[in-house]
Design a binder for these strands. Structure first.
Lengths: 150, 150
DNA sequence: ATAATTCCTACTGTGTCAATAGGTATTTGA
DNA sequence: TCAAATACCTATTGACACAGTAGGAATTAT
């Protein structure tokens, strides 16, 4: 599945904010840009999307930055994906004109695409940003252990 | 999930050929174009892809047309999708440059995208063109029954 | 005041999709 | 043998989204 950088960077940015604002401080776009190696200007546009979607709050001015508006455990992947790319979890569409004339096109929907969409929706609705961060932390711990033994 | 018309028409064309060549005759692009309401010229390009992928064989000349090269039960959806769009079932890619610097991007792969890809691959590898056609036929039968009672 | 920050808008290059178009090569049937 | 039908090939086009780049305006802490 091809995932756009907008989606990829958006998820990474949210996770970065969640992790580095745990002590109560804000996280600036410059910080994220450096840590995650993402063009700051491009990142800023993505952060606007995430703010408009209600995941983060931005504070302007010196010492400003971003914080989550709610706990990472209350932000589902489904919501994130829908905010960053409204096609990934969208139904496969057939125009009304074509619908009556031709049922093979409708059949492939009910037989394949709808089922795949349902699965993806269920999977992403049951996974939160917190789950992702936990997964990340535990996997980077084992990376460190690996490094140690090498 | 956004599916291109190339993929949609390709699947429909294959199913159409499978259905209308059951008596041993060939199926022309004009036939498919009319039945499925698809631009013939565009369809021809898609049929070239399907031929190059080995699903169908084309016979030139008068009374020519297309037939399947093997039974519909031996053509998996996975193969069809890979032929028509090599991104749908592809791994989500992270450049080697980014891989070491940044493990958040890798984590989202192992945590989300790889799992979705695995599911989609399993689902599509277990479904053949014959399954799809069976599903279509049985659902259009019930449509007729519905029509009758109305 | 000044520096740091978010926020807003415009522009650009690149690539893919979804055709449209016109033609060539081949085969069958009359 | 000729004409029609068919697959097959290649070029072009318009629209659109992506992936940034760029410049600055608004706001805030120190």
């Amino acid at each position: 599945m091809r995932i756009s950088t907008r989606v990829e960077f958006g998820i990474v940015a949210l996770a970065d904010i969640a992790i580095y604002s745990e002590n109560g401080s804000t996280v600036s776009s410059a910080d994220i840009s450096q840590r995650q190696n993402i063009s700051q200007k491009y990142l800023e546009q993505i952060l606007v999307i995430l703010r408009q979607a209600g995941f983060i709050r931005g504070q302007k001015g010196s010492r400003g930055g971003y914080t989550l508006t709610r706990p990472a455990g209350k932000i589902s992947f489904q919501d994130i994906l829908n905010a960053l790319d409204n096609t990934i979890l969208a139904d496969t569409y057939i125009s009304e004109d074509d619908k009556n004339e031709n049922d093979l096109r409708c059949s492939v929907n009910s037989c394949v695409w709808d089922k795949l969409n349902s699965y993806m929706r269920e999977f992403t609705s049951n996974m939160t940003l917190a789950d992702f961060i936990d997964h990340h932390k535990s996997s980077s711990e084992s990376d460190e252990a690996l490094m140690y033994y090498i």
